[in-house]
Simulated assay, not measured.
Amino acid sequence: MVLRLVLGTVCTAMAVGQVASVTDMPAVLGAYGLVHGAPAGVLAALLIAGELVCGAWFLARPRSTAIVPVWVYAAVSLMWSGLAVQAYARGLTVDNCGCFGNYLTQQLSWPVLVQDALALLYAVLLLRTARRTAATRGPTGGAEAGRDVPTP
């Protein structure tokens, strides 16, 4: 539960920073050398939406066993990590990694890669926990256990 609260806070902060920098996000993502113009704008919108979904879900329902926000978090983490690793491997200079839009900027370097690796590790941990929880709940989905059933 604590991990979900921390990740919810970080994802929400990332999304807020990116929304506040929304006009600059296509250029920020373009610095990674894979997408430019309209495709970069679409990628920015997808990343922001994903961060908002998992951030809000983790904060609002940290005990939830729903798998969708976990998969969204994993996809967003994989996308940011993929962008960073390929740009770093190609020796591109990325002055602003874009994680928080134009706020809390970091140049793409090995500390950013470590942060991305940790995000992927957290995604794996969340996915393993979600899969284990789903397996223990059985084929009925766990409603009888009252895990995701609202109480009056």
Rank of each mutant, 00 (worst) to 15 (best):
T93R: 12
S81H: 14
V16F: 05
A84S: 14
F58I: 06
M14A: 09
S21M: 00
V16A: 01
S81P: 03
D116T: 10
A31C: 14
V70N: 10
Q115A: 15
A38W: 13
I48R: 09
L78Q: 11
L78K: 07
L46T: 08
Q86H: 14
A60L: 09
P26A: 09
N96V: 13
G55M: 13
A119H: 11
V22Y: 11
L29W: 03
A117H: 10
L120Q: 08
S81V: 09
A38F: 14
T105P: 05
Q106L: 15
T65M: 01
G30K: 02
G33F: 00
D95T: 13
H36F: 14
Q106I: 14
A75V: 05
G37D: 12
I67E: 00
I48W: 02
V72P: 07
A84I: 10
G98V: 04
M14F: 03
I48A: 06
W80K: 13
M79F: 14
A89E: 10
L59D: 10
P26Y: 00
E51D: 07
A44N: 04
N102M: 15
A20M: 02
W110H: 15
N96M: 13
L120D: 09
I67A: 08
V19H: 04
F58S: 09
A13D: 03
L46N: 10
H36Q: 15
Q107P: 01
L113Y: 00
L34D: 04
A44S: 12
F100K: 08
S64N: 07
A66N: 00
V16H: 10
M25P: 06
P69Y: 09
G33R: 06
V53K: 10
I48C: 07
A44K: 02
L121N: 04
V53R: 11
L78R: 03
T105C: 11
Q18M: 04
G41I: 12
Q18K: 05
F100G: 13
L52Q: 01
L52V: 08
V35W: 06
C97D: 06
D95E: 13
S109D: 13
Y88P: 06
A20C: 08
A87K: 06
Q86S: 14
F58A: 05
R90V: 11
P26R: 02
E51C: 05
T23W: 08
V114S: 05
Y103R: 13
V114E: 04
P111Y: 11
V22F: 01
A20D: 00
R61E: 02
V19P: 08
R63Q: 11
V85D: 05
A38S: 15
I48D: 02
W80L: 14
A40V: 14
I67F: 09
Q18E: 11
Q86P: 03
S64E: 02
V76A: 11
L92G: 02
L59G: 07
L83P: 02
Q115P: 10
N102A: 15
A75G: 08
I67D: 04
D24C: 00
Q86A: 14
P69G: 11
T105E: 05
A15R: 13
N102W: 03
A119Q: 00
A27L: 06
T65H: 11
A15T: 09
